[in-house]
Design a protein around this nucleic acid. Structure first.
Lengths: 347, 347
DNA sequence: ATTTGTTATGTTACGCGTAACATGGATCGC
DNA sequence: GCGATCCATGTTACGCGTAACATAACAAAT
């Protein structure tokens, strides 16, 4: 029989309050510890006790406080994800992959949109460390020094998944942007295209975009071709930018016979523009894309592209993170989920 | 001078540990309360104290523990969002809107993908209540009884934003799916189309889809036209479904002269299919869509559609939620952000 | 000089749980 | 029959902060 010198609660805004584990304990006539065990570690209490506690929980509608649990046990069930742009539909698959794994395991996902900047990413990381997330998934593979420090000090497991970087912060689950870009360039060359243009995304603060350009240039080099500045553009993501780029290239460099768009939806914008102008694809100009967006298969002609295992990246990232968190795995890993060239009619 | 009968820490896994406010306090030779104030309420401490504390914080790399803060102050800085499908790009804008507002205000976003089911939504809500989120944003406007109870008991402010429901749980920030659908149907009729087909999304457990169908039927009624079962289809979201639907309608109901696709990307799939088949749009068949996806403007011909204020819905939802949380606003609101019919060439 | 504030800081008591250890009784071995 | 074990439950001491109240020091008011 506990003495239960009930502490009066602190402040608490208004009238009724959420019920606490203590309320359940009192009502069931047991200690809070027993309630805690009945809910979280049912094997440690007798069957009738389990039922008694459960009954009270249902009766008063007790909802356990995870914040308190996390604080006390020094273990959180939240994973933080930072993406450069939540608007970009390409992240949706990865998020879904992460989310699916987490929810089965009782974890939750917190998402921050950092924008393209490294400093903003640092701010998002700070926020997550403050929330004491159990793990982090970052899309970027370059970070501010302060961010790196903070993560190291907090000893939070991290998965990077935007690029198969050779110097990961911790573990990496991704594919090689360099290799994918190189492979597509070689593929186009093998198909007989002689003047392959490359439309990059904005490379500033975007290591993925830089890697893709590097892959393209490496391929040209292997082919014994000289890179031509006029054949390399840099454009922001978007349909309009793609449309504008194809027009620009065809009109200023007439000998161009293929364009490899190394980023989102640019190629779709381009193919639609060709359609409008009556330019045959691939007759006049061949087009290739870098992504596995559903849309690419449906435009006319369907676009040759690189399929990236986005869902799988999310899934494996989350699994890997949970393994690290639970201690099932202690080693850093570098997981290459590869890519696949999808040959369609546009090139 | 505090006596500081230092408690030995509980368990804590391994060697080094994250630093605590107490460590900062000791090093600065002050009480933890002073540190807390220096960090969270700088005006309450002297300038030199502020600097001294800040210096120690930087020196030892102290990162405040938000979990502890939330637990102690009984106030969380996390908002929960539940969407039926994170994959659906239409949520991206809304998420961005929410996220933008939250981050300026020091709040964070936790996202759950509930899938289409109501029970899954309830589970997500439970999880969020357990995390003691400060507020909730739900896309669904119908919920299980248990979910409604739980939210009421927890007294968490909620914004629903998938439809301007007349019986909101709490507040609602949205547009009327019914009115939008009705308006487009009337618009098509005004343009002279006589046989307007309607392609719905799957209506089961989707009140938005049901409202849209209701709007279509209401418009027909106003026009004195009889609904024709052959002109109403139900399809899952996707390009292929749209393509299939247009073919099905044109081939089985030859007199159809317009199709209103009341859901995502269906219309895009349809217009691309028409292109492939050489069906003139709108000559043979007019097409209209329900959404403001960027893509719709770029296909050939550009699609007539309904622009929905998705970003704005996110922004206003978050603002409204923060107002409620901070106590700046106490009343439930119902905010209609309207919609706009965008007349393009497809109808 | 005494009262009354004001400002800067400290002290105490929680928030709501869990880890670690303690305890009382039933069970087991020989 | 008696210590060793096990099982179910209780007790205590935190996790890491903040609210509320207390106090010291010094300024302003009467």
């Amino acid at each position: 029989m506990a003495k239960s010198s009930e502490p009066k609660r602190k402040k608490r805004n208004g009238g009724t309050t959420t019920s606490r584990m203590r309320d359940v304990a009192r009502k069931a006539g047991v200690s809070v510890m027993t309630v805690s065990r009945a809910l979280n570690d049912p094997d440690k209490v007798s069957k009738e006790m389990r039922l008694r506690v459960r009954a009270v929980v249902d009766e008063i509608g007790y909802v356990p406080n995870r914040l308190a649990r996390s604080l006390s046990s020094n273990r959180s069930n939240v994973i933080g994800l930072i993406v450069p742009s939540i608007r970009n539909s390409l992240f949706a698959e990865t998020i879904k992959g992460i989310s699916d794994v987490l929810s089965v395991n009782g974890y939750h996902l917190m998402i921050a949109d950092s924008g393209p900047g490294l400093y903003e990413e640092e701010e998002a990381i700070t926020a997550f460390v403050q929330q004491r997330v159990a793990g982090l998934v970052l899309h970027n593979t370059s970070h501010t020094a302060a961010a790196v420090d903070m993560i190291a000090k907090a000893k939070i497991p991290v998965i990077e998944n935007g690029n198969l970087t050779s110097r990961p912060l911790d573990s990496v689950v991704s594919y090689s942007n360099y290799e994918a870009s190189r492979a597509m360039t070689l593929h186009l060359a093998r198909m007989g295209y002689k003047q392959i243009a490359f439309v990059s995304l904005v490379r500033r603060e975007n290591d993925r975009a830089r890697e893709r350009l590097r892959g393209y240039l490496a391929a040209l080099d292997e082919l014994g071709r000289k890179p031509d500045d006029a054949l390399v553009l840099e454009r922001p993501s978007g349909f309009s930018a793609g449309a504008e780029a194809v027009v620009h290239l065809v009109e200023t460099v007439p000998q161009v016979d293929a364009i490899f768009f190394a980023g989102d939806v640019l190629a779709v914008g381009a193919v639609l523009e060709c359609q409008r102008r009556g330019w045959a694809v691939p007759g006049r100009i061949a087009l290739a894309s870098f992504d596995d967006l559903d849309m690419l298969r449906h435009v006319n002609p369907p676009l040759t592209t690189i399929r990236l295992p986005r869902y799988e990246i999310g899934r494996r990232s989350a699994e890997c993170l949970l393994d690290r968190i639970s201690g099932r795995a202690t080693e850093r890993i570098s997981l290459d989920l590869k890519f696949e060239i999808i040959q369609r009619e546009s090139a």
